[in-house]
Design a protein around this nucleic acid. Sequence first.
DNA 1: ACCTGAACACCGTTCAAGT
DNA 2: ACCTGAACACCGTTCAAGT
Lengths: 228, 228
Amino acid sequence: MAPRTRAEALSRERIVEAAVELLDADGESGLTFRTLTERLTTGPGAIYWHVANKAELLDAATDSVVSNALAVETTGSPQDEIRTLALGLFDAIARHPWLSPQLAVQLSRSPWGSVTPRIFEDIGQRVSALGVPEATWFTATSALAHYIFGAAGQNAANVRVLDDVDRAEFLHAAANAWEELDSDEYPFMKSIAGQVREHDDREQFLTGVDLILTGITADAGPCGSSRP
Amino acid sequence: MAPRTRAEALSRERIVEAAVELLDADGESGLTFRTLTERLTTGPGAIYWHVANKAELLDAATDSVVSNALAVETTGSPQDEIRTLALGLFDAIARHPWLSPQLAVQLSRSPWGSVTPRIFEDIGQRVSALGVPEATWFTATSALAHYIFGAAGQNAANVRVLDDVDRAEFLHAAANAWEELDSDEYPFMKSIAGQVREHDDREQFLTGVDLILTGITADAGPCGSSRP
DNA sequence: ACCTGAACACCGTTCAAGT
DNA sequence: ACCTGAACACCGTTCAAGT
């Protein structure tokens, strides 16, 4: 029982929680100090007492959501654990599509903020457990992390407001559009239109993770190509 | 000789060109309608005659820069051509760091705007020339594209305003900071700190591209691991 | 057809004043 | 210590008016 319990005292936690809700509902443009003060029935000054500025608030919201996504049980081979972590991030970004640009912005403001090292660390620990040379760890972990963010971001862009039915229609329409593209200029897009129409996002995503895992463990053996 | 030549008539091209210059100089926050009208010595209404809104202007600026980056001569094996394209994008994003968040935003607004299909097409054509099964084309191309954007974005974040000397100092300081991280929480980041301090960005980037190319061509043969 | 420039609604942020 | 709320500078965008 804290001293004041009547009107649910303001706190950094409550502010971040409300920010996440606004972002989930209406995207990045849905979070303003106006909408935030309205929801929390307070004034801008009150928020600035707990939070330095909007950028810090977005960082905190990102941190909160990513932390939850990384807090998963992982057991099995390093490969399995990497798949679990990757899928956790993929699903989190699908649930919170605003994360994708936000992670890029946060990265570009300070390359090693609070979120990036944690993701690198979590993935990197499993990469180092794959038994590949230590000299390849950094490159391998980067490749995995970048693929996860990029693929998840693209998926989030598709998901956004659409429910499953709308989404199927959307993909269908997109695939049809590609099939009608000029075959001189876009032969490749035309050829994969069918795959796009029928693919399952999460399955496709995991296939890509496996592809990179194969590249990591294949090393420069007989299957790989080596550059001079 | 056009009817009016005295004061360099306004045009969509000139507006986009000025926008790119402002973005290069001061990042995304450096481009406002105030700074733009000032540089072009005109009013906001004049710009709105040629451009629908700021989002379209950013799209046009992105499109212009990426088009240049993709307009490179590529000859050699499909692998070589993919490396050339990848490095071209990497360097373009290093020269124009604002591209990185912008590509993410553009992707999240409309998944298949004008830029993304061109990049997918250019890379995808080479992937399909690798001689791997058509069913893997989409996944392979996605993995490459996402890695390129992610790695280039991270690099751009490091480069930003720093010159080479500052950059070396920056990496040195970052590596030192990681080495002093708690070894229970961040054992992996500690272990790769040395690699980060000494790595060459472009070389490291190409190594990652090769890693993914290896994964693509290794298929599910004896070198790869397959998931049940 | 192309441009001017005042005006509008909205944004993040500040700060003297309250309790 | 924590909150109020008016005020400020700035933003993207509009539009009647000019040429």
